Amino acid sequence: MDVDAYVAAHDEEWKRLERLINNSRKLSGAEVDELVELYQRTATHLSVVRSSSPDPLLVGRLTSLVARGRAAVAGAQAPMWRDVSRFFTVSFPATAYRMRWWWIGCAVLGNLFSLAVAIWIVKNPDVQASIGTPGQIRELVEKDFANYYTEHSAASFAFKVWINNAWVSAVAIIFGILLGIPVIWVLFQNQLNLGLTGGLMVAHGKGDIFFGLILPHGLLELTAVYLACAAGLRLGWTIIDPGHRPRSQALPEEGRSTMNIALGLIVVLFVSGLIEGFVTGWVHTTWLRIGIGVVAEVAFLTYIFVLGRRAVRAGETTDILDGPDRAPTAA
């Protein structure tokens, strides 16, 4: 594409849009219609430029103009609840669905690692002895593991685990900027702790207690961690291989999509924290505890795969700068 010719052909439209945006509070009905039309056309121009031109200045100019145009067109008319609703029904599930193979891969590899660690510990008494003294291990499997879920009030414990899990997930996402390499450490450190504790519990005949207490909240909590690790790894991989997009375009776009995951996981981990705080240690019927965890996990996966697939098929880009009202028009 001849960038100079494209700019010459559309520059007056962009300047006119900017003037309308600057006076958006004083527009007549006809000018409002013109603003909407120019905003939609400029959004299409931005898509064309992104895919055809490596010029970062032009991309930056049009990105800013589209963002301001969206605010002028929708800001005064769309209440905040509509943006929140769109985030949870479109943006977050679409982003999670798009990176489904990344977090499913994290889940499979992570749990295979935990299983291998647990089996290694169960079958090797010498390994168990290297972890702690017989008294320390007995204290863990007979008291500490179960008491951990009830030693604080349900509300304070739920808040504590929510903050802790949100921090672990945030670290996994942030580490993506380091080519994703530290994300692998976060994932396997988390899985190592799971396999180590599980192995000790099973080795001492407490496997039923371990799974009865870890599954209610762990299903949803670990899924959230896998999703956070996937977001960090995908961001890191974009630095290495941006694909068909220029790296200067791919990284901001992937970063903005990753923000969908970070914000959505705050709510997901809040739910898992509530289950851990109010169900895991306080519902004494094992099948009911696990059943609550299974229902929460199935509901979350259904939410991602139903709403996410629908949004992706509808053309959702998962880029927060792309507005929901963008309509294709002739370039």
Rank of each mutant, 00 (worst) to 15 (best):
I214Q: 13
A314R: 10
G105N: 05
L321D: 14
V225D: 11
A299H: 03
A250M: 08
A170L: 15
A299C: 14
E276D: 08
V183M: 03
T95Q: 15
L179V: 10
I304W: 06
F300H: 01
N165V: 13
Q77W: 04
V267G: 06
L215P: 01
A8I: 08
L233D: 07
F188E: 00
V49K: 01
M99A: 04
L265K: 03
G264E: 08
F159H: 15
T223Y: 02
G207C: 03
H152V: 00
V48G: 03
L200I: 06
F305D: 07
F88V: 12
E253Y: 12
V298F: 08
W81Y: 09
Q128T: 08
L200F: 03
R100K: 15
F278G: 05
N23R: 14
S272Q: 15
D322C: 09
I121G: 00
A43P: 09
E221A: 09
R16W: 05
I177G: 12
G243K: 00
P246T: 13
G218R: 13
G180W: 02
W287C: 00
P246Y: 13
L321A: 08
V186M: 12
A146D: 07
N193D: 05
F159D: 15
L187Y: 02
I209M: 15
V127T: 04
F145I: 07
A146S: 13
A67I: 02
E221N: 14
A78K: 14
T223N: 03
H217N: 01
P56Y: 01
V108Y: 07
L17A: 10
L179W: 10
S24A: 10
V66L: 04
V84C: 08
R234H: 04
V186Q: 12
G198L: 15
L200Y: 01
L27N: 03
G236I: 06
E221P: 12
